[in-house]
Design a protein around this nucleic acid. Structure first.
Lengths: 360, 360
DNA sequence: TAGTTCTTCTTTACCAGTACAGTACCACGC
DNA sequence: GCGTGGTACTGTACTGGTAAAGAAGAACTA
């Protein structure tokens, strides 16, 4: 069947295939007159442009970068912070003309996107570095950037200062005079419910770092927090059930530190539904400072991170890594750590003098 | 530089290149013994698997589908409804092993993802059908599915029943006895502020359809709504400013119909900040029924759409379209319309007998 | 006027696979 | 003892481009 290729056009115009290729890809390599003629003929023949797959093979660039998300795509995507991260990535990517390919962790092993889809490099966002998907990317020797996960030698990484941020949050409630503190966190893998094992055992790096930060400050004040870990299964219940557990404890906490603002939202609802007040009865601190934090009533005290900047930094680092890979055999990546900042709003206050009973 | 290809492995094992290819891609074509031997040698040589770009060229499949989002990626992505849509897409895509490539509308014209990135088909989500990016996809004759935009002949589409949903929302406030109704909508392109032109003039199909639906019901009750259109620039102010305009009108509306729940959130805050109550002074209706709608206080009356199902339907339609394109020259796509449903909660009530003055 | 450089186009040599049609060998049935 | 069918592997012929060096004529320099 009459598929139109560069050769078809070349024959029609009476030039070599290479010249037609240049007409599309390197306009400076031929005269403007000839180029216009070629483009006109191409248009008449219904030629759209050089075939992307063929071009990818010949030139060695796919024109897109991968993004590997933890677990199922599905799971990571429900998080609204992830959206902002994506937006940050696209800020950097769009001007370069690169596309972004989401690489789901495949359930099968016949087709595995991380192994079988063409990309020029990839961002690895909050994944288990031991996972098979990450393994494939490493073996392919693609330029990589690790984001929100433990830095690996030789691989560029972008992180926020989770530990310091969490530490500041915990120090804040300590300074307010709280002595009974609960932590509500979320993650995947490991045990759920009231957590007994030390933070080091957790798989998810972000969670581990924040837990270390919280216990840094609490430990220094000789406070042993109750850590409640809730699976990420029900997006609608984020933190609600965990908070109920915390409130039901004999020594009810007067402050709850949360892994994210989304969780803090659920925690606040649980507190209010139990007939208690925030911050008069229980103080709550979030993490992220997402747009909702400002609007929540009471406005949420939280640890700000600039997720969009994180996305930009990650994409920029990847672009550099790809550039470098073209010339040098292998570059050692830089490790970027972005700052966090405690934002004090209305959800934290000194602990109550006497503990009000939970109604309900 | 010893790059390892199928040939390298073939030479080592002493079989033909084709057999090595089959060992990876079509295990049933050779004996298990030989296959294991080949795989072992491949592993020793550090071979990861058939090169994705070469495979794409030779087999004619890229292993990924495109997603074209309106305008800048950046812009579409801040919307949390878009996230749920993505999750729905991945529900269908993941089991097939396909990846998802986000195709940003490029600002330049040397590299245009919609034209230059290899995909097996594409979803076009809420785009202007006249845009150049859509034009490229059409010219490439890729299997396409249009989502949330005007159906085009010969192209499969997935929509929700925006018009009927909006109509139900409007009918609801009419039934409650409201006579002064404002509409707060959002979109891109065209005039902003109090809208004078008829709905038909709007570019964005979703917005146009909902506007038609609202005016269907209001028109039948002989009510002329005030339509306020706010640009999508400031994601943090969604609906707030528009609501302030509405509340400042001489004939202050007693009901406000909103394009989305996110806008409704801003509208409610604006009403409350003006010292008025929802729903006693002003009723508010949203659209989407996103998770927040339930949590908002008061809980939001809204029009539910199943965004995730929409994503699933779109991806499924695309997969069928791709399947069919392999055999038949061109299939005419089906047009799917998903239902909407009015969910009545606490943000709507009969209008007040007397109009309370706005404080502040 | 000859040498040099530019511009413009062409030649050659890949890129790394897959599809499809063989071919050789074996077992089976009668 | 010969067709018949199945399994296991191979040979040939593509897929549609790009990089890099080469060649031919024009323009520029000395």
């Amino acid at each position: 069947m009459g598929r139109v290729t560069l050769q078809t056009i070349a024959d029609h115009v009476g030039v070599s295939r290479m010249t037609v290729s240049n007409a599309f890809s390197r306009p400076d390599q031929l005269s403007a007159r000839l180029r216009d003629r070629i483009l006109a003929v191409a248009n008449d023949l219904g030629y759209v442009g050089p075939d992307p797959t063929a071009r990818a093979l010949a030139s060695g660039t796919a024109g897109t970068v991968g993004l590997l998300l933890s677990d199922t795509l599905t799971y990571a995507l429900t998080d609204e912070v992830a959206m902002t991260f994506l937006a940050g990535i696209s800020d950097e990517l769009v001007p370069t003309g690169l596309a972004l390919t989401l690489l789901p962790a495949s359930p099968q092993d016949t087709i595995v996107p991380a192994r079988d889809v063409a990309v020029d490099g990839a961002l690895v966002y909050s994944c288990d570095p031991q996972s098979t998907a990450v393994g494939w990317l490493l073996r392919r020797r693609l330029p990589l950037v690790f984001v929100d996960q433990a830095a690996a030698p030789g691989i560029a990484s972008v992180n926020i200062d989770d530990r310091l941020g969490a530490r500041a949050a915990a120090q804040h409630v300590v300074d307010l005079g709280h002595r009974r503190v609960a932590i509500v966190t979320i993650g995947h893998g490991g045990e759920y419910g009231v957590l007994a094992s030390p933070p080091e055992a957790l798989v998810a790096n972000t969670e581990r770092q924040r837990l270390l930060g919280w216990t840094d400050a609490l430990g220094a004040a000789d406070i042993e927090p109750v850590v409640i870990r809730q699976p990420h299964a029900e997006p609608d219940d984020m933190g609600y059930t965990a908070a109920q557990i915390a409130l039901g404890l004999a020594d009810r906490p007067t402050a709850i530190l949360c892994f994210s603002d989304a969780i803090a939202g659920g925690v606040i609802r649980a507190i209010q539904d139990a007939g208690l007040r925030v911050p008069e009865d229980v103080s709550v601190v979030g993490f992220d400072d997402n747009p909702l934090a400002r609007r929540t009533r009471p406005a949420l005290t939280t640890v700000r991170q600039d997720v969009r900047a994180k996305g930009r930094a990650a994409a920029a680092a990847l672009i550099t890594a790809i550039e470098r890979a073209k010339t040098r055999p292998a570059g050692r990546g830089r490790h970027i750590v972005l700052p966090t900042e405690l934002v004090i709003r209305d959800s934290t206050a000194p602990p109550p003098k006497t503990i009000a009973p939970a109604k309900r």
